[in-house]
Each structure stands twice: as structure tokens, then as C-alpha cells.
Design a protein around this nucleic acid. Structure first.
Length: 575
RNA sequence: CGGGGCAUAGCUCAGUUUGGUAGAGCACCUGGUUUGGGACCAGGGGGUCGCAGGUUCGAAUCCUGUUGCUCCGACCA
């Protein structure tokens, strides 16, 4: 037929029986074992042909949806001049994650960890009129972030492929429309990729901005904790999920009293000693911000601190656990901290729920001493304390939308949509003239998809003990044709005929013509995870009995040569 | 960055305690027998034992330093 035969003998896909030490999660192990990726260094991977085919299919789906939503594809450099980042203030703020380099003249650059500054610079001189708006530009580009701890293969690598689109509108209403278009496009993309996913409300993080959703694939090995509601459509990243204060039953406020509580430096020990429930205690957690100032957070004993909320509450760039010396310097005592008696000027953040408590127990800032009958509404001076929601959501907490108990699950964040507002356009003076000739900053949005991570997430969600189970849309090949014994000319010829027949119909097909034993080829087919396998053996030659095996269900279909092509096309539609 | 672990053949690992000729399985090459779920037999290639110092007649093994990888905690697509 004149088609180039895509043969396994001509495919660089070195499969491995065992995964190298250090690959821990299924997607990482399987990508290595299936001959898809190889590691060059920590967080740096080569995409071998099978992986690259899948990457390109994912990219193609993204392109189609971005274009349909009005996006225009373009390309920016990966190396970016320091000046732009200094202008936006992120040269320092991005920190060590940004890989900085100097050219031969000593001029400073960075490897782009993201492209807000670049794009704003591109448009600021020539996107000047409201008539040019809205405008959406996107690229599919390598980015580099010098991650503290790259891990899980492509899930958290340092160099990674990302689609990023930037929208420019003349006002908030326009930006909302762009945001919604992208939200819908993302929904289409991840649906087409075969995911079980949820768009979740999220914190906007270092990138800035005020409204954002993360598109999260539900999977055991995800790095995000997701709270979601089965009664309504609420879903949020745990670090974002807001909580209303819990109202405790009213009690008479008893007089504040110090009690000796030797050795009770944890909530568990304290509750045992005092014979009270955790709900009657106030837990203290001490942090330090980037200026080494101490931030003391107080939540109910059975609750945990949400450090993202806390960070936002005090406007910190960075928070870490405080060391004991710093705690003492602030007037606290490790293990026995309380809000009463802390030095003025120290950040004291109290969770809203705590303020509703009655006759609670809290540390007295002296070793082996607690206060009892603490009534925050009476005993915590308003002066200098911050009262807000800093609590981490947990399973069973009331849904912020409908009040029903929420569920928790793990997820892999594969995409994120942001309303940036005018943060970057103001910093970089990217303005346009409106209908009245008035100069205004562009209203921006940015929208990212981690392409490699999307591939990894697909494997996390679709695998079994034998290997990968690709959704058809992003499989490296849709079908593999396996002559059981490629040394038998009749089998090879029939397999080639079927290959040609499928190829004519536009099916993405591979011929496993290796002169290996059948078992080897079957094992590889399962490992690599082609959605369909067509087996051409002696039965096919003698009895016109060709077998189609469906990878996902394991189902085996027997049919004749004449029906084969048509049936494969039908089956593919269901996978 | 903090805390643990590891570094020996392409991959998985033994050998290190007690210093004395560098090993196995898988993979690879040759020949033969096999051929519907990772075959078998015979032969073969392949390692400056992460790197640099030191101790010793002699170091994969002991000492010091260093680098890389990896797992656990704080960042993120």
C-alpha cells in the first residue's frame, strides 16, 4: 500500500523488567519500564518516542481547544532578561527556584519559570487600543524551576513542558468572559484526555491574582489534598477551603486560673492529665516568617493550622516552623504556649473558632503550666491579635456552600486558571486607550497546563499490575498488531495486511514484527498499554480466527479478517 | 535547607562486619534447540567498585573529605 510501516523493530522503546530503584509511584515506574522516559539528572528527563507521541497527542488536544476558544499560538524565548523580573519585583521574590545565568557580557538572565513578565513586555508597546481586545496568546514551552525536591518522575520535574495562555481584556467583565472560556476549554481538554477530574477552588500563591481554579485529577498519589462535597458541586484545595467558625454551647465564664501540668507538652498528654477533651483545649503552633519574626497561631486542640491561610493572614512571603530560642525570645515557652503574656509586637493569629470557646485550656508561657477557664472573648486582648479563619479543613467539616459534611481525597493538579487582574500590567505599564481615549491597564488572566504531568496523571489513573492502560485519545499508538510468530511468512503478511487496512482508515497502528516469542510481545503490549491488540497466529491463518484483546477489560474478541478493520474502528470509539 | 538511606556490569542487587585474584540474575553478542503469556543449552563481551586524598606490603572493604542519587518535612504545573 506504500505506507511506511511503523514497526516495533524500528521503534526505540527499551522496556525493562524491573524499575530502577528510586521510582516509587506507578506512573514513574511504568514510564521507565515501558521505555518512555529516561532520566538525565535530578528532575531532568528525556522523552523517548513513545512518550513523545503521547505528549504530542495531549498538546494537539490542547491546541484544538485553545484555538476554539480564540487563542493564538506563539512562542517566547525560554531565557529571559533579568530587567523584566526586576521591574515586576519577582527577581528576588521568586527566590532560589529561579535558575539565574549570566551571558558572556555578564548580563543577567533566568531560565523562564513562567512567562507573565515576558508576555506583558511583548504586548505593552503594541496592544494599545480597546479595539484590539480581547486578545489571547498561548505557547507550549519548556519551563525550568529549580525545585527544592524534584520527585515522582514527570510529576515534579525541574524542566517541564507547559502550555500557558495569557488573556488581555479591557475590563473585569471582559476578563470574566475570558476566564470562563478557558475554564470551559480546560473542562473539554481533560474530558477528552479521559480523566476523572474536578475543577477546585485554590489559593493564588506567589503568582498573584485574586480568583483561581485548579484542575485536579483524582488519584491516590496526588500531592494536593482536595475537599469536595457530594451534595453540591463544591470542591476546593484543602489549603484554600474556607471554614466558618464553630459555635460552642454557651457556658458561664469561670475565673481564669493557672494550673501545674508537668510534662504535658502535647495536646494528647495535656488532655489525659487534665481529663478534658481536645475540643476544650487551644493548640499553639509557632512559625517564623522570612524576616525571622515569630508568628504564633492558635487553633482548637483537635484542629490543624492551615499554613497558607496563616501566611495570607500575616502577609508573610514564607513561613517555617519556629525554633525554640525564637519562641522564648517572643515570650513563649515551647510546649506551653498561649496567647496570654506574649510579647507585644509578636504576630498572634487566633482561629475564629477559638474565639467562640468557653472555659478552655491553653498554655501559660511557663514551663509545666497551663491556664484553665480561658475565655478568649474575655481574656484575649483585642489589641494586636488577628482573628480569622486559619484552620485546615478535614473530612466531615461542613461544606462552605451547603453545610453538608465534606469528603477528602488526593489529587494531581494538572492545570490552573487565574484571573490576574492588573498586577503585571500595572507593574510593567502595559496600558491601552479605552473608548474615551483614557489610558487603562490591561486586565490579564493566565492559564497553565502541565503537559508532562498530564501524561503522568493519566498513568496514575489508568494502570494495573501488568502496566499502563491508555485512554485511546492519548495512547502512543491506538492499536498494536502482533503476529504470534513473525518468522512465519503467512502470519507476518496477514498482520501487514491488517496494519495497512487500519492505516488507510486513519487508525494509529503499530506492527510488532519482532522475532520474539509471543509471551515477550504480549508482556510488552500490556506494559506499554495499547488500548487494542490484534493477534495474528496460526488460528488466523488456518481458521480465519483473528483475536482482538481489549487492554482495559481484558476481553478477547474472535472474528474473521473481513470484519476486523471495521470492528476495531468501532471499538476504538468506546475507549 | 534540616533529618535518614544508598552509590559495585545497561537494570536489580550480593560481596564491606573480619582488607588478600570483582560476583549472581536479568539484559546484550554467537551457535543450537524452541516458539500463544517475559524459553533452554553452550560459549562470549562488558565494571579505573561515584570522585579525591589517607592508612597498609596490599583497599570495593578501614579513615577523612567531596559529589551525586534517594526517602521523610516546608514550595509548586
Amino acid at each position: 500500500m506504500g505506507f511506511y510501516l511503523m514497526r516495533t523493530t524500528n521503534l526505540y522503546a527499551p522496556t525493562l523488567r524491573e524499575a530502577p530503584a528510586g521510582a516509587d509511584i506507578p506512573s514513574h515506574k511504568l514510564m521507565i519500564r515501558a521505555g518512555m522516559i529516561r532520566k538525565a539528572a535530578g528532575g531532568l528527563y528525556t522523552y523517548l518516542p513513545l512518550a513523545w507521541r503521547t505528549i504530542r497527542k495531549i498538546e494537539q488536544i490542547i491546541r484544538e481547544e485553545m484555538d476554539a476558544a480564540g487563542g493564538q499560538e506563539f512562542m517566547m524565548p525560554i531565557i529571559q532578561p533579568a530587567e523584566l523580573w526586576q521591574e515586576s519585583g519577582r527577581w528576588e521574590r521568586f527566590g532560589a527556584e529561579m535558575l539565574k545565568v549570566k551571558d558572556r557580557h555578564g548580563r543577567e538572565f533566568c531560565f523562564g519559570p513562567t512567562h507573565e513578565e515576558m508576555i506583558t513586555d511583548v504586548v505593552r508597546n503594541e496592544l494599545r487600543s480597546y479595539k484590539q481586545l480581547p486578545c489571547m496568546l498561548y505557547q507550549i514551552q519548556d519551563k525550568f524551576r529549580d525545585e527544592i525536591r524534584p520527585r515522582f518522575g514527570l510529576m515534579r520535574s525541574r524542566e517541564f513542558i507547559m502550555k500557558d495562555l495569557y488573556s488581555f481584556d479591557k475590563d473585569d467583565a471582559g476578563a470574566d468572559i475570558s476566564y470562563q472560556k478557558m475554564y470551559d476549554a480546560y473542562t473539554n481538554i481533560f474530558t477528552r484526555c479521559g480523566f476523572n477530574f474536578r475543577p477546585v477552588e485554590a489559593d493564588s500563591g506567589a503568582i498573584g491574582g485574586n480568583h483561581t481554579h485548579e484542575f485536579t485529577v483524582l488519584a491516590e498519589n496526588g500531592e494536593s489534598d482536595i475537599a469536595y462535597c457530594e451534595s453540591c458541586d463544591y470542591a476546593a484545595n484543602a489549603e484554600k477551603a474556607e471554614l466558618s467558625p464553630i459555635v460552642a454551647d454557651k457556658e458561664d465564664m469561670l475565673p481564669l486560673e493557672k494550673v501545674s501540668t508537668p510534662g504535658t507538652n502535647t495536646i494528647d498528654l495535656l488532655c489525659d492529665f487534665m481529663n478534658v477533651s481536645q475540643e476544650k483545649t487551644i493548640k499553639a503552633v509557632a512559625f517564623q516568617n522570612e524576616k525571622d519574626e515569630v508568628v504564633l497561631a492558635f487553633v482548637r486542640g483537635d484542629h490543624d493550622v492551615n499554613d497558607v491561610k496563616l501566611q495570607n493572614a500575616v502577609g508573610a512571603l514564607d513561613l517555617r516552623m519556629a525554633d525554640d530560642d525564637s519562641i522564648r525570645a517572643a515570650g513563649g515557652e515551647p510546649g506551653f504556649m498561649g496567647p496570654i503574656g506574649i510579647n507585644k509586637g509578636t504576630y498572634v493569629v487566633v482561629d475564629s473558632t477559638v474565639m467562640n470557646m468557653f472555659n478552655a485550656v491553653t498554655g501559660a508561657n511557663e514551663k509545666d503550666v497551663h491556664y484553665k477557664n480561658v475565655n478568649p472573648s474575655r481574656d484575649f486582648s483585642d489589641e494586636g491579635i488577628i482573628v480569622t479563619d486559619i484552620r485546615l479543613i478535614k473530612e466531615g467539616d461542613p461544606c462552605p456552600h451547603c453545610g453538608k459534611p465534606v469528603k477528602m481525597t488526593r489529587g494531581i493538579e494538572v492545570g490552573q486558571v487565574f484571573k490576574l487582574g492588573t498586577k503585571y500590567s500595572e507593574a510593567l505599564h502595559a496600558t491601552f486607550l479605552d473608548e474615551n481615549g483614557k489610558e487603562k491597564p490591561l486586565v490579564m488572566g493566565c492559564y497553565g497546563i502541565g503537559v508532562g504531568r498530564t501524561m503522568a496523571a493519566a498513568i496514575e489513573q489508568h494502570n494495573d499490575k501488568d502496566g499502563i492502560i491508555w485512554p485511546r485519545a492519548i495512547a502512543p499508538f491506538e492499536v498494536v498488531v502482533v503476529p504470534v510468530n513473525a518468522k512465519v511468512p503467512e502470519q507476518l503478511e496477514l498482520a501487514e495486511q491488517i496494519y495497512d487496512g487500519l492505516k488507510v482508515k486513519g487508525v494509529d497502528v503499530l506492527l510488532d514484527d519482532r522475532k520474539e516469542r509471543a509471551g515477550v510481545k504480549f508482556k510488552d503490549a500490556d506494559l506499554i498499554g495499547y488500548p487494542l491488540r490484534i493477534i495474528v497466529g496460526p488460528k488466523a491463518i488456518n481458521n480465519d480466527d483473528i483475536e482482538i484483546k481489549i487492554r482495559k477489560s481484558g476481553e478477547m474478541i474472535h472474528l474473521g479478517k473481513d470484519e476486523c478493520i471495521k470492528r476495531v474502528q468501532e471499538l476504538l470509539k468506546t475507549l
